[in-house]
Structure formats: C-alpha cells, structure tokens
Amino acid sequence: GRLKGKSGRGLGDKATDPSMSEQDWSAIQNFCDQVNTDPNGPTHTPWLLAHKIQSPQEKEALYALTVLEMCVNHCGEKFHSEVAKFRFLNELIKVLSPKYLGSWTTEKVKGRIIEILYSWTVWFPEDIKIRDAYQMLKKQGIIKQDPKLPVDKILPPPSPWPKSS
C-alpha cells in the first residue's frame, strides 16, 4: 500500500515533489520513518523510488535519488538488501544506458546516479552485485571514470540528517 501521511497524500510524493525549489529534509525524514514503521516498507519502497528516479522531470528524479540515498543510510538491512540486488540496480542502469532510457535522461541525473553507485561501491564493498554493476557500466563505457565524491560523502554512512533551511 502507499505510505500516507496525515494529509492522505503519499509521503513519497511529498518527499520528491518537483514543485519544491529545495529538497524538503523533514519530508524525507518522515518518509524514512514511515518506511521503518511499515512492515512492507523496505520491500516496496525501492520500487516506488525507482519509478520516480525514471521520471522525465529532472527535479523529481534528483529528489528521488536523494531520498534513495537517505533510505539506504537510515532504513536498515532489509531496505539495503533490496537495493543491493540486480533487480533494483537494473532500474538505475536503465536510466544510464542508451539502450533503455539513457538517451533522454539529463546529464545531471546520470551524474547523480553514478555518484551514488560509486559511493556504494566504496562504503559497501561486501555488496558484490553493486560492484559488478558498476564495473560493467565502466566496461561498457557508460561510466567513463570514477566520480569525485563531494566532501559530505567522504564520511561513511549513516550520514547525519542535513538541517532544513
């Protein structure tokens, strides 16, 4: 079922709303809390996020990617293990590869996905599938070189919650 807040609006929609000029960290935090409370949260949420990451609206995709990162850091082992499967990673690959959606995805979204995948290979070296997917993307020339991780990504997860502006 959809994760709903008091307003009845999907919490996933709220956390990734492209009409917001900035990421709403409290909405993301609420979303992560709901994922942790809902028994189906960890297994259903990755797919909800994958769908938004594949959105033609750049902002929605970018916000969804941030939510994904935060969920991996804050929603526990079950969420993490869903995301570490090829079944999920393939959804990110589809956004990058010109064979699927890559031709009409913006460089900004692709760059973020590459950054996220790379950071996961650094922080979760035990996740062989993440490493394999990343290596294959490099081999195919879809990823040209390892991205430079921004300063706030140098600390391993769980990352602290950013303060809402």
Partner: peptide, 15 residues
C-alpha cells in the same frame, strides 16, 4: 527455498 530461487533469477541487465 524461495529465497534461493530469487537469487538464481537475479540477473544484471544487458547494457
């Protein structure tokens, strides 16, 4: 057993 077959079916997309 369900988990094992899920693992077997988990493949990387051809790129």
């Amino acid at each position: 057993l369900g988990e094992e077959s899920e693992e077997r079916d988990d493949h990387l997309l051809p790129m």
